[in-house]
């Protein structure tokens, strides 16, 4: 099956465009704040920021319906905010506090929300791919019309279990959208140094899975592609691959000296392709919003993020008894 290019149609209302701006800005500001709290020692361990990739999750959430599931890797803060999880709970998990989504026991890489159908937050590169297909398997078993968005990176796209999963997902026609967030670097290894063929959207061809490449710095293009993919899955045609070309501005994790790319490369992306700036210009030029309107949104988002940081600092550390809970579920 040949890869198809989509032409994004800017068929979008003022309200939706403004919502995209708001949702992406929330992720951007939240991540900046997380980076700051890390620097202050309030967040420990690994902390992988999503800055630069915001249009991917915001565009795909716009293509999702109630009850659809999502699962991703350790670079997961953006996914959680985009599907409506509470910034306070996410930030408090980053600081390892009782008010966090996992009561402080999961950390940056391991958060979940049954309510929002967010299934983690997984720390082993590629492991979430069969898990996501398994979530889709449960929906197909129940014949409930739900779709699972399974996110992974260009690095994970080389893992063996991904191809085992492609095979079974296609064989069993599982309703799963494989979202390859291609930010061009697997930790510090550029894609051309790790990957024999660069077109990751064609990786499903051997299994009969259609795929397309999407401009991940354009939230509207992402939404259009997401709708196509979801429609394919809901029609019972099995999995679909979206290779979404994106870029992370920050390091792989906080302790990344970023010697594998030039400062100019990052700067050029920020200046020319920033996904939030892209929507900001559309809003202003299309007269959907005034500078003052956007300033008000900025202020509002800043307040939400600052409140989440305050919550995350004030929430107490988990009680020591928590060490011994949640190891086994009780029979019901």
């Amino acid at each position: 099956m040949a890869a198809r290019k989509t032409t994004p149609k800017p068929n979008v209302s003022s309200e939706e465009l403004t919502q995209f701006y708001r949702d992406m800005l929330l992720i951007r500001r939240f991540e900046e704040k997380a980076g700051q709290l890390y620097g202050m020692g309030l967040i420990g361990g690994f902390c992988h920021l999503y800055i630069g990739q915001e249009a991917v999750v915001v565009g795909l959430e716009a293509a999702a319906e109630d009850g659809d599931k999502r699962i991703t890797s350790y670079r997961d803060h953006g996914h959680m905010l985009a599907c409506g999880m509470d910034p306070n709970g996410v930030m408090a998990e980053l600081t390892g506090r009782e008010g966090g989504y996992s009561k402080g026991k999961g950390g940056s890489m391991h958060m979940f929300s049954k309510e929002k159908h967010f299934y983690g937050g997984h720390g082993i590169v590629g492991a979430q791919v069969p898990l996501g297909a398994g979530l889709a398997f449960s929906d197909k078993y129940r014949d409930n019309g739900r779709v699972t968005f399974t996110y992974f990176g260009d690095g994970a796209a080389n893992q063996g279990q991904v191809y085992e999963t492609f095979n079974m997902a296609a064989l069993w026609k599982l309703p799963v959208v494989f979202v390859i967030e291609n930010n061009q670097y697997a930790m510090g290894t550029a894609q051309q140094r790790s990957t024999s063929t660069p077109d990751l959207h064609t990786r499903g061809e051997a299994f009969g899975i259609p795929g397309e490449v999407v401009d991940g710095m354009d939230v509207l293009a992402v939404k259009v592609a997401g709708k196509t993919a979801v429609g394919h899955c809901r029609a019972g045609k099995g999995p679909y691959i979206l290779e979404i070309k994106t870029y992370r501005y920050r390091g792989h994790s906080m302790s990344d000296p970023a010697k594998y790319r030039t400062r100019e490369e990052v700067q050029k992306m920020r200046e020319e392709r920033d996904p939030i700036e892209h929507v900001r210009i559309m809003l202003i030029e299309g007269k959907h919003a005034s500078e003052d309107d956007l300033k008000a949104i900025d202020k509002e988002i800043k307040a939400v993020v600052n409140a989440s940081a305050e919550f995350a600092k004030e929430s107490p550390e988990p009680a020591l008894e928590e060490l011994w809970t949640d190891i086994y579920a009780e029979a019901t």
Binding site: A127, P130, L131, F137, S138, D139, E164, T165, M168
Partner: peptide, 26 residues
Amino acid sequence: SKRVIDTPITEHGFTGIAVGSAFGGL
């Protein structure tokens, strides 16, 4: 065949799919 399922010889993949289906409530 909906409930008794032959898999390909891919332990890593089908184990992950089974675990995911258990997260999904099966």
